[in-house]
């Protein structure tokens, strides 16, 4: 094989090898790490899978936040004003977590539809609403988001 061709062959083989390994890796990594989003109504209707990491979002229902004495466990309800989801979380809530404000929780659902969250995301400032929460409220036909 002449050197020029050999060189080109090296280039092509390296490129193809690199890209195909990467594609396999990406597909493999993707299988376990994509989290789907469900609204409280979908969860109430039983459309969300159990024991698989999912995201849920909505508003923290007023008066639903209950802390336990002695531990850092906290329970609250996430609502889209059509249905509620009970959420359990152990740890420290973000600063902007408040009753009546938007929240996204990441975790697993058990057979009693109790959502055990390992991450709680609150909005970042006064005016910002996570798009997923807006989506959940729109789905449930909440008037606050309709006139925006």
């Amino acid at each position: 094989m002449n050197p020029k061709r050999k060189q080109r062959l090296i280039l092509i083989l390296l490129g193809v090898a690199g890209v195909s390994i990467a594609v396999l890796l990406v597909l493999f990594a993707l299988r376990q790490n994509v989290n789907y989003f469900f609204t409280p109504s979908e969860i109430a209707a039983g459309n969300a899978p159990q024991s698989q990491v999912i995201r849920a979002g909505g508003m923290v229902r007023e008066g639903s936040v209950k802390r336990s004495d002695g531990s850092l466990e906290v329970r609250f309800q996430v609502t889209d004003f059509a249905s509620d989801v009970d959420v359990m979380f152990e740890g420290i809530l973000p600063d902007l977590f408040q009753e009546g404000e938007g929240v996204v929780v990441i975790g697993k659902l058990d057979e009693n539809k109790l959502f055990t969250a390992d991450t709680v995301l609150a909005k970042h400032d006064e005016t910002y609403m996570p798009p997923e929460v807006t989506h959940a409220l729109e789905q449930a036909g909440h008037p606050d988001t309709m006139n925006k």
Binding site: A29, Q32, N33, V34, N35, H135
Partner: peptide, 27 residues
């Protein structure tokens, strides 16, 4: 790919999804 996948899924009307940090860490 990991960054845009949620947008692509959204554009095709699929269920909203997010790609977690473990995906990026692994790759």
């Amino acid at each position: 790919f990991g960054t845009l996948l949620p947008l692509i899924a959204d554009a095709f009307g699929m269920r909203k999804l997010s790609v977690g940090a473990p995906f990026f860490n692994l790759v």
